[in-house]
């Protein structure tokens, strides 16, 4: 356990500068947009010069940039992300309302893509170069080229518009009054299409990583040993080859979490799914830069947390992780 703990501590310390850099970056973007926000606001409500000046005062636009950065950091430390002009609400509350929905979508598609993708990767990698392998690898490449949002549209067209099997948009039936399991089932039905659209692309990726990992592991000495031990082919494929090839797939899971979060923005927009992505789209439409950057910051924190979890899982799967650190103590 101590080996995992050491690793966690190292990662947590390492993520502090990352978060600081991102915060400074968002601050600059905020600065660049600052004037616009006042102008946009003024343009919308038709404010006069006096009100504009008052707004500038209120938003601290007349102070030195360094002071403003300090104020910004101080506010962030208190989880105060500012006020959303588009929704007329505090940003942090909005984010906390939408985050669970996005996590649900991401979790579902990750489970789908990782599970199915690595499973099919095992099927393909069980005999590298076989017809089955070539069909699956090629299919994965084609799937990987499909733009997620367009796939979403096509799925929606087919399964909702034409067949009417699944709901077209939203996260649950509005004002249905459903509770308990019935409500969960309703949400699950709403999740099918967006989660599939998001998952299919990553499914292709995990399939390919698993497959090429297995092709590599087959050439290793310890596989020759396993064959010399006369183990059943099934056991060699699953317990020796796939078990080792799983490691790079898990690594990929962490690497891709940021991309998946980005991809969910468009998918949520396609399906009107009320998560952070749809919120980001509203922020763009409402020219609400503080809200948009709040979403960026929350995404970064989410990505860091997901990567921490992935690191722990990896350490559980690979006994060699952190062996040096432990030895050095």
């Amino acid at each position: 356990m101590s080996r995992t703990w050491l690793l966690l501590r190292r990662r947590l310390i390492g993520s502090v500068p990352v978060i600081l850099i991102v915060v400074v970056g968002t601050f600059f973007l905020l600065e660049a947009a600052g004037g616009d926000a006042v102008d946009a606001y003024a343009g919308e409500v038709g404010a006069d010069a006096g009100l504009i000046e008052q707004l500038r005062q209120q938003w601290g636009l007349n102070e030195s940039p360094l002071t403003r950065l300090a104020t910004y950091l101080w506010a962030l430390l208190h989880l105060d992300l500012g006020w959303s002009v588009a929704f007329s609400r505090p940003i942090s509350g909005l984010l906390m309302e939408r985050l669970p929905n996005t996590l649900l979508l991401m979790g579902t598609s990750t489970a789908l893509s990782f599970g199915l993708g690595s499973l099919l990767g095992v099927v393909a990698g069980a005999r590298p170069g076989s017809a089955r392998d070539r069909v699956l690898s090629m299919g994965a490449l084609v799937l990987y080229a499909v733009p997620g949002f367009w796939l979403g549209l096509v799925l929606a067209l087919f399964f909702s518009v034409q067949l009417g099997w699944l709901p077209l948009a939203g996260i649950e039936t509005i004002a249905s009054g459903l509770t308990g399991w019935a409500r969960a089932a309703d949400i699950a039905r709403h999740l099918v299409l967006p989660a599939s659209a998001l998952a299919l692309i990553y499914l292709a990726l995990y399939l390919r990583v698993m497959r090429s990992g297995m092709a590599e592991v087959w050439r290793m000495d310890f596989i020759r040993t396993a064959r010399a031990k006369g183990l059943a082919r099934r056991r060699i494929v699953l317990r020796h080859v796939a078990r080792n090839a799983l490691l790079p797939v898990v690594t990929m899971l962490g690497v891709q979490s940021a991309q998946m979060l980005g991809g969910s923005v468009v998918i949520e927009s396609v399906f009107g799914y009320p998560g952070l992505g749809l919120l980001a789209e509203s922020a763009v439409r409402g020219r609400d830069t503080p809200l948009l950057l709040g979403i960026v910051l929350l995404s970064v924190v989410t990505v860091i947390v997901v990567n921490l979890v992935v690191d722990i899982v990896y350490a559980l799967l690979d006994p060699r992780v952190g062996a040096e650190a432990e030895g050095a103590r």
Partner: peptide
């Protein structure tokens, strides 16, 4: 049958054992 009638030991002990399985499992599976 390899493993049952013939046992084989290879050269490089560093690479001929599966790195992610316990020693016990690798002996026991035989």
């Amino acid at each position: 049958k390899p493993g049952k009638d013939i046992g084989i030991v290879f050269q490089d002990p560093g690479s001929s054992l599966n790195p992610v399985l316990t020693v016990g499992e690798q002996v026991a599976e035989v």
